[in-house]
Design a protein around this nucleic acid. Structure first.
Lengths: 251, 251
DNA sequence: AATAAAGGTTTACGTTGCGTAAAGGTCAAG
DNA sequence: CTTGACCTTTACGCAACGTAAACCTTTATT
């Protein structure tokens, strides 16, 4: 008993396109073909197709099904387990997504009035993520995992008040740097002050301060254009260079 | 402060390709472009990108994100809810998949020694599915939902013994049909016997037998090439036609 | 100022599993 | 001999980019 492609499709509930595709990728070949190229399937292929569809419903990729159907139970086992693990992980992922969407919905409803602290915490978290993406890799290489972790921890632990202080210190630092940058006769004392301010600012997140690390950081300021741009824009062109030199001299 | 595409990418942790793609689909355009075509982004785009990534992590499609970011909270609500429902459904689906894969694993381990009855049940289930795909629609139209349901039920309720009897009856039917088909002088009595056997065979699954339905079914035998092929192959060319005529005459 | 290195651009194919035409042969039936 | 019904191959479309090719700009270095 031979089935035409359409009969085969109707019997199994798939499209003829699917059968041609499976032929194309060598997943399921017809027993024979016509002189005209017509495909014909026997009961052997019907059974194989049933198996394919079984695994397909379990979300297996066709390439995996391919391997399953042409391998010993040994590797079938491992494929099944791998797939199982992937499914479990996916479920966990979706679970967390569901939770997150629930929160988002509640937030949009206005049901969750974010408190100031929560907003601040979210803000800090965002900053850390940004910094991680910006410099995380380089900094970890230079100062090690723990230093970075510690810095992030102290960031997250920082109160809104401390943050304001830190901001103010930075403002002063920049103001001084600006003036210093415009001076004709630059005073040693001014440079020292600036370095002090910068140190103070750093220590808000960098509990294990050392002058070595400070100098090393200063080098990065120049090496990385993003630092340079930041200070040059805020305190005038050359400010980053000036800050670096000052740190190297007086840290 | 303007960011180059690479800076933007590093800050947010996406690839430059992604940013170009988002530009291409009008999801995130740079604030300005160079004479040379270089893209530059401002903090506005940084924030928008953050939002995009937020929703992207929740598995939203980019087209949905597009709509979310450019619509009032009214439609945001509905998009969120739709997405939420989809996620829940997906989780349920995955849960069932996990269960199924567990079973499959156990089966492959040989832990589940399928009893004969279970095997038989699985076999019957498979037959029904095949039949549903083959003829389900047509038969439902002709005989109604209940008739089909009932037939399937009696199928599923059938014991292995009954099934063997049924098989034997079919064997005899086919044997008789074959001989009848080869006879020169076909005897009325032989035809009647054949119809009887077919009726008996039918009644294993068709508890509400009527000669009307039997005749109607006979017409289908000829109309559907799959029936025709089946009987012609088993009992010789012309057997299907013969069976039909007999049924019409003596049912 | 010339050159190398780094970064930018567009174009386009590959991925997964088919759906959906388009253009054109083949086969059984009237 | 002509319909239809069914078959074939070819090929674009989808989602969200990864990857590579070929080539132009900007920045850094000599």
């Amino acid at each position: 008993m031979l089935y035409s492609i359409k009969q085969m499709a109707q019997m199994s509930g798939v499209s003829t396109r699917t059968l041609r595709y499976y032929d194309e990728i060598h997943l399921l070949k017809p027993t024979k073909t016509n002189e005209a190229g017509y495909r014909f399937y026997s009961t052997v292929e019907v059974d194989r197709l049933q198996q394919i569809l079984f695994y397909r419903e379990l979300n297996f990729k066709l390439s995996d099904i391919q391997r399953i159907l042409s391998s010993e139970s040994q590797s079938i086992q491992s494929i099944l387990h791998t797939h199982y693990d992937a499914l479990v992980e996916e479920r966990n992922h979706i679970d967390s997504l569901i939770e997150a969407v629930e929160h988002t919905i509640a937030y949009h409803k206005g049901e969750i009035e974010m408190s100031n602290e929560e907003k601040f915490a979210a803000f800090k978290k965002k900053r850390i993520e940004e910094n991680e993406n910006k410099f995380g890799e380089e900094i970890r290489e230079k100062y090690g995992e723990e230093a970075v972790e510690e810095a992030n921890q102290s960031w997250m632990g920082m109160s809104e008040e401390s943050y304001k202080e830190m901001q103010e210190i930075e403002s002063e630092l920049i103001e001084r740097l600006k003036q210093f940058n415009q001076q004709k006769n630059q005073q040693k004392e001014d440079a020292k002050q600036i370095v002090m301010l910068h140190k103070k600012w750093l220590q808000y997140t960098w509990s294990t301060y050392s002058s070595e690390a400070h100098k090393s950081l200063a080098d990065m300021y120049i090496a990385d254009e993003r630092f340079t741009q930041y200070y040059d824009e805020k305190a005038g062109v050359g400010a980053a260079q000036l800050l670096r030199d000052s740190i190297l001299a007086y840290a």
